[in-house]
């Protein structure tokens, strides 16, 4: 399993699409820094806020492309047959791939977070905003939430890859899943606030959104950026509950993926 993880790490770094996404990530951090200059009163807050958003998008795309590189392409090119011909259980293969993506993603998250930290610090220029951002523990807590968010997307993409017969499916469905999961909180809030007075919309979508939460996790619950942006406290119970929800969802998906992958006919 360790050998699988090691080979996966190398393969993950070699992928051209992954390198392109990483480059885009660097550009986005730069763009986040520039957006701060548009703010008349809170340049650091805006730079950090936009930076968190861009960081999340980058991490999600990175894990999706890694899933593409490490699983989908292997199945498509049939190179997976060489790996599976070794005396290794299929569930171990899946776990190894997931941990590889988790390791690569962690490194990326730390690098981008470091850059964003610097960008937020520089965004102030000579202006001392009245309410400073928190670039300490709350900043890293937010990064942790975004990392977990992207790993949930990775687990979902891995599950899709285990059953999909087309290579584009894990990427496309992963993007859709990430958007749905993230916008779920905003959608629920919108419907609960009355959907701009549209009673029909509220009536139609409220039960649907309530049910959907059991299938797609509310990823906005893992977004703790308000703590870093506005230095506000977050109840520990919220952090623990949301993290546990995310971790158990990942475990569930990995179990399903292993089951599906065991039954899959590769020839």
């Amino acid at each position: 399993m360790n050998a699988l993880i090691a080979s996966g790490l190398i393969a993950g770094l070699r992928g051209r699409s992954v390198q392109a996404v990483a480059f885009l990530g660097f550009l986005l951090v730069g763009a986040a820094y520039l957006t701060g200059s548009f703010s008349p009163r809170q340049p650091q807050t805006v730079a950090l806020d936009v930076g968190f958003s861009f960081l999340r998008i980058t991490l999600v795309f990175l894990v999706l492309f890694w899933t593409q590189e490490l699983i989908t392409k292997e199945i498509e090119r049939k190179t997976i047959l060489f790996t599976l011909s070794y005396p290794i259980a299929r569930w171990k293969y899946i776990l190894a791939r997931f941990f590889t993506i988790a390791g690569l993603n962690l490194c990326s998250a730390l690098v981008f977070a470091g850059l964003l930290w610097g960008a937020a610090l520089l965004a102030a220029n000579d202006y001392q905003q009245q309410f400073p951002v928190n670039l300490g523990l709350k900043f890293w807590l937010t990064i942790g939430g975004l990392y977990l968010d992207s790993m949930i997307v990775a687990a979902f993409a891995l599950w899709v890859a285990s059953i999909s017969t087309t290579s584009i499916m894990p990427l496309a469905s992963g993007i859709l899943f990430a958007i749905c999961g993230k916008s779920l909180g905003a959608a629920i809030a919108y419907i609960e606030a009355g959907a701009d007075g549209d009673a029909v919309l509220t009536q139609r979508f409220q039960p649907l959104l309530s049910s959907i939460q059991y299938i797609v996790p509310d990823l906005s619950r893992l977004d703790w950026r308000f703590a870093a942006l506005y230095n506000t406290p977050i109840p520990h119970s919220s952090i623990i509950m949301a993290s546990a929800m995310g971790i158990f969802y990942i475990m569930l998906l990995l179990l399903l993926t292993s089951m599906m992958f065991r039954r899959r006919e590769m020839f």
Binding site: S183, L184, A186, Y190, D196, R225
Partner: peptide, 15 residues
């Protein structure tokens, strides 16, 4: 409409 704005921002309400 707000849902479209959220969708265009990759589901991120802050963005």
């Amino acid at each position: 409409p707000r849902p479209i704005q959220i969708g265009l921002a990759f589901g991120d309400s802050n963005l």
